[in-house]
Design a protein around this nucleic acid. Sequence first.
DNA 1: AGGTGCGTTGCAGTATGTGCAACGTCCATT
DNA 2: AATGGACGTTGCACATACTGCAACGCACCT
Lengths: 253, 253
Amino acid sequence: MSQTVDRALSILPLLAEGPADLGQVAERLGVHKSTALRLLRTLHEHGMVYRQSDQRYRLGARLIALAQEAMENLDIREIAHPHLVRLNEQCGHTVHLAVYEEDEVLYIDKVESRYPVRMYSRIGKPVAITVAAVAKLLLADLPEAERHALADKLEYPLYTARSTPNAPAFLKELERVSEQGWATDLGGHEESINCVAAPVRGADGRVVAAMSVSAPNVVVTAEELLALLPQVRRTADAISGEYSGRTPAKDPV
Amino acid sequence: MSQTVDRALSILPLLAEGPADLGQVAERLGVHKSTALRLLRTLHEHGMVYRQSDQRYRLGARLIALAQEAMENLDIREIAHPHLVRLNEQCGHTVHLAVYEEDEVLYIDKVESRYPVRMYSRIGKPVAITVAAVAKLLLADLPEAERHALADKLEYPLYTARSTPNAPAFLKELERVSEQGWATDLGGHEESINCVAAPVRGADGRVVAAMSVSAPNVVVTAEELLALLPQVRRTADAISGEYSGRTPAKDPV
DNA sequence: AGGTGCGTTGCAGTATGTGCAACGTCCATT
DNA sequence: AATGGACGTTGCACATACTGCAACGCACCT
């Protein structure tokens, strides 16, 4: 809606790919160098971009700090965390918490496995939306129209032979997940990694978050991991209960 | 430099304090509601803000994802990580990596303690700049003019009785740190937590990052922690060596 | 019904952002 | 050393695109 702001914000994902100089930014924005310069300067004043010693721009520290605050403001994370830790203490595997927001699913908390083999994933990282167990739960709860629209819009990268191949398969899987109330990802993202996930629901029954336990084949088989399902569901339900009991977070006066 | 972008970006830290509705945003920006609406819409299109069910705005998922990418692009983090993990395996305590950027010091990596007592800190979180051991190392290396200007600009919150009280004390401490080549924080931030830190240097000898080992009094005494100094310095030097040896990261074609 | 608070829309005026062209600087090349 | 090119930077005139206003719609409350 606002051209100037629109252009300025378009610079950020561009820089996320890697550092770029003024000319590159101007070219990719399709504007004159002087225009790009002024936008970058404004972004710089706010600490959103940083000018490194070779004069090129990259994303700045304030951006990272802001994102940090954004996550700390999510009350679901705060409530869930101790539960995730407890589950990790019981089973030893990696535990994730994820939320859905406008076409993206992202991890907002993680407790590392106590086994030597660690998974590659990070808080704040967008999830492989078409295969991850937590993503299935979050999307399965969307209103039908939105769910279909999103499924059509998505791409279906074939990470492995068991990745969800296309929209119809995905929608079918979502329905199955919706009925059974839990989800799995058996090697759909990385060949040797399996996950079991359960939904966290708000007072109105809508899914507000999803949590999962993940472990590589070399540690436990898929069957052994599935045996943890009751524990995972109990944990998710406990979080749901605590979350529903509270009044939604208000501003601190 | 660009008024519109400037205003739009000013919304973000404002929302970082907590969700806000249109009226509040407009008021705090000092602009008309319709103006604020257009800015918020533009931010929304880019996923930087999210409109929750009660119509209020809060920071959005794309912001978090961007920050994530920003950190993954920091080559120093990538190089340092395995070293941090190794140090953690040796000593068991929490290990941090931090960088300085335009008046802020922030953690860019962390390996959790293997003792049951965990520290409160998070990747991406700005560091208590006047007391943290890593901050001392990073600031001690700034050009004198910049260092003095910054020291004057800072605030000196008294977290504990041992917090750095004011600019002169801070500058004196920085000189000491600069000479000895390492730094400590002995209960300056939280009464019972101590840290030992060492600098990571680039090929030109400038400090590009700093790493620290932290542990609460209940686990080890300050003296015991200080005994780890040689190990910490060795680790930091190893990272420095590897970082200097490499050509600075270029765009992947 | 009537009133209040909030988000939203269309519009006219002009402040504000835009592209241009020229300049300075640094680096590579001859 | 001298020349050329690439890149960031500046000042300026133009008109686009942003602003604030006022009116509207809507939901909620009394």
